[in-house]
Nucleic acid binder design. Structure first.
Lengths: 341, 341
DNA sequence: CTGAAAGCGCTAACAC
DNA sequence: GTGTTAGCGCTTTCAG
């Protein structure tokens, strides 16, 4: 493990004095703007100024077996992992992977949790059955992309509810009044997205229809939307609970001879990069996936740092904001006039 | 403003060397256990080792006029303030109070926000009308005890939803099946508590009844519960959306000749200290009020620290866990047999 | 285990 | 603006 970067390393790297670097980074005192930029860039590149060092400590990353083998469903997970890994390498932490098939397999964890070089355990996108065993672990624990409804474990998640609200509001701002929520019910995460759509629709939510796919796949979503169209259900905009479902919706609409966005607008949630290559390019609400990974490590470190201290780090839940990625699948409600039923 | 405590101050204070203090605090190297304790105690007492210092900077605390003048409604707010003030003094920050009556009065704030000695602005328990002007402020902003549904402003709140779920689950664990949620609809906070009760009740939520008080006062709650009893609405447990409402429920039940907890159990949410002096002492879900105040200052500092830096602090929402304070107003469902309607 | 002293990383003061 | 240098606060080393 390379030593942590010092202010002097940056100075030598750029052939300038440490004082200048100090000024540039702290923002106090005069530094030429251009030089300051260069210094800050180098500081980031060299991983300067990271918090407490836990270098060499291990972090156990528990993922459900299911989340790893099913690539289509797990792309989201992969991006979270990417952010997690990057932050881990910045902090000099070692990530130990540990895939589990079911809650039973957690038994061995209690022992591992006591290892002295273990910083803590991260549970990534696991389901509720592991909450109970996880709560009784003796080391710091953080849930990533799930939360504990009883708030006995800390967690880092996107703000699913406001992400979905943002998606729905985008459509209503474009004049859409009859909105379909395309989903595959299941995890709490998805339930929160439904709540978000309801929040945004407010009093108009009785005009909302819910289209349920059989599975979290493009094919299932396509089938569900095709069926909704065949049943002549009325909507001019679709909020899909995930980009993958949105992709299915695009296909079904195209097959039915409907144009996107002229006839129907479609917006996804997740912000997977391939959305940009769909036809039309998918408007979506992007979740800061790498940031979620990075933050969960930070939270684990904070918890570990205060553990044993008089003031413990309280159990807390942190939700990160999402942002609208406007592409071409949404537009003003216009052509496809919908009659009230 | 006294200078921040240094390791040397602690050493002199105890008449020992700085090296020993260093070892005791970092936990590396040998220090006599007893001496180590003494050193750590002194460190806390002298406020040693607080994060970055913003000593002397001002924090603008905006509270709604309403929240300050109505003592009964604002006790909660006062405790949050207490935690806020304590942390501010630890960090050497100056809190400037600024009461507003309505969103219009925010106009002047834009100017104040640019003052160079201003660290940022905290909005405490304000209502949604101020969100819009607050979002366009140029300085770091954190909402305390409210959140931004659009997630454009960071916030620190209790986890109202899981707090309410915890309250309801406490009753169901005691065998209660017909539960009344006593509330005064209004702020989003309270809506979340309703959702929490629903979460906990799950499939049984159709047996839940909602009792709405006219106002967030003991009297209004008392009247509402009295009316529910007169209407012969069936319940053996009451989850009150706030301790103040719970106090009203206790009075109404007593007046109707019902015993608590033998006939009806009552649980509050908030954890106001006077709950202990009600008859019977109120079981409640305690919200870490001081911690909320302290954390919001921390979040403001984090945001301020990274502002202007290449990596901005992302907009995030932090929710703190609540805990059950078991007193005497809840018990096993027993005496008061309720027939299905 | 503890203290003295050397060393490290950063900032502040000052010169140009 | 930038480098030199002094100085501060903390940790590490080493002797006892």
């Amino acid at each position: 493990m390379a030593k942590r970067a010092r202010i002097r390393d940056i100075a030598e790297h750029l052939g300038i004095s440490t004082a200048t670097v100090s000024r540039a980074i702290s923002g106090k005192g005069y530094v030429r703007e251009e030089l300051g930029e260069k210094i800050r860039a180098a500081a980031i590149e060299l991983n300067y100024g990271l918090p407490e060092d836990f270098a060499g400590k291990r972090v156990l990353l528990v993922v459900s077996h299911e989340a790893m083998i099913d690539f289509e469903r797990s792309q989201f997970t992969m991006y979270v992992l990417e952010g997690l890994r990057r932050r881990a390498s910045e902090r000099g932490l070692v990530i130990d992977n540990h895939a589990i098939r079911s809650a039973d397999e957690l038994d061995g964890l209690a022992e591992l949790a006591r290892a002295s070089d273990l910083l803590g355990i991260l549970f990534l996108t696991v389901d509720d059955s592991i909450l109970k065993p996880a709560r009784s672990l003796e080391c710091p624990v953080v849930l990533v992309n799930t939360d504990d409804p009883e708030m006995r474990l800390s967690s880092v998640t996107p703000c699913n509810r406001s992400a979905a609200a943002m998606a729905a509001r985008h459509l209503t701002d474009l004049g859409h009044e009859r909105i379909a929520f395309l989903t595959k019910p299941g995890r709490r995460t998805i339930q929160r997205r439904l709540e978000g759509v309801r929040d945004a629709l407010g009093s108009r939510q009785d005009t909302m229809i819910v289209i349920e796919a059989e599975d979290w796949t493009v094919q299932a979503a396509q089938a569900a939307v095709a069926e909704a169209l065949a049943d002549d259900r009325q909507f001019t905009g679709i909020v899909a609970a995930g980009d993958i479902l949105a992709a299915g919706a695009l296909i079904a609409l195209h097959a039915a001879g409907l144009r996107v966005p002229e006839d129907v607008s479609v917006i996804g949630i997740d912000g997977l990069p391939q959305g940009a290559y769909l036809a039309p390019a998918l408007t979506t609400v992007s979740i800061p996936m790498q940031a979620i990974g990075a933050y969960s490590l930070d939270m684990l470190c904070n918890t570990a740092q205060l553990q044993g201290t008089s003031r413990n780090f309280p159990v807390s839940r942190i939700e990160l904001a999402c942002s609208l990625t406007k592409r071409n699948s949404t537009g003003l409600r216009a052509s496809r006039v919908v009659e009230p039923v």
